[in-house]
Amino acid sequence: MPNTKEQRLDLIENCSLLLEGVLKPFSQTDNTAAGRMITQCQWLKERAENHDLPLPVKEGKLGSLLYIYTNGELFTADSTKEEIHDTEVKMQRIIRLAYEGQLLAKPSYTPYTLRCIDALITLLQTAPRPLSPYEQGLIPDLGQLKRLLDEGKIEPPLGAYKPQYPNFIKAERSIRDIPNGKDYFYTVSDLIFNGVRPDSWLTPEDADRETRNL
């Protein structure tokens, strides 16, 4: 599992964006979700700045972030759709960096993401058995995602498969019996929906080497 300077800088950036953004109006206190989230972000940020944050961080140190994120604790009736999406993306990135110890998917890795999507499409088209309706539906979905990503019209993480891409839900289970199906599916799913790249893609050169022959 990687433990890189890039991850620490990404953590600092996303914690700062929350502290200076959605959390700015609140005071640091431990009996509200917003106050507790400030404590959580400051702790992560300071540790990362001091090079004292081995990744992944123990779950017990991230309990507030995980609970507040899952339970939508920061949002009120006044929160706009955009604000909720924007905040959840930052929290999700912090979770993926700190809790899962993963590397973020970034625009410089888009060409290699496109290769992975192509590889998954090819795998489906050459599958050794007839495809289910969901797997068949996944092929145009992947084509659409590839185009949108290439044109810079979507930015990972997209979040849930549903509502735009319901075929991903069923195909995730059925594709496992196709050789390499599980690996290819989760690589693409991680890159697009979860906003993280494979652990071995430490640099664009690594990603290029690993995807050249897919």
């Binding site: 999700q92 979770i95 993926r96 849930a160 549903k162 509502p163 991903f168 995730e172 929906f193 979860n194």
Partner: peptide, 11 residues
């Protein structure tokens, strides 16, 4: 799978 169906993300 049921939670995916409900529209929740993986995390």
């Amino acid at each position: 799978e049921a939670l995916d169906d409900q529209g929740w993300n993986k995390d």
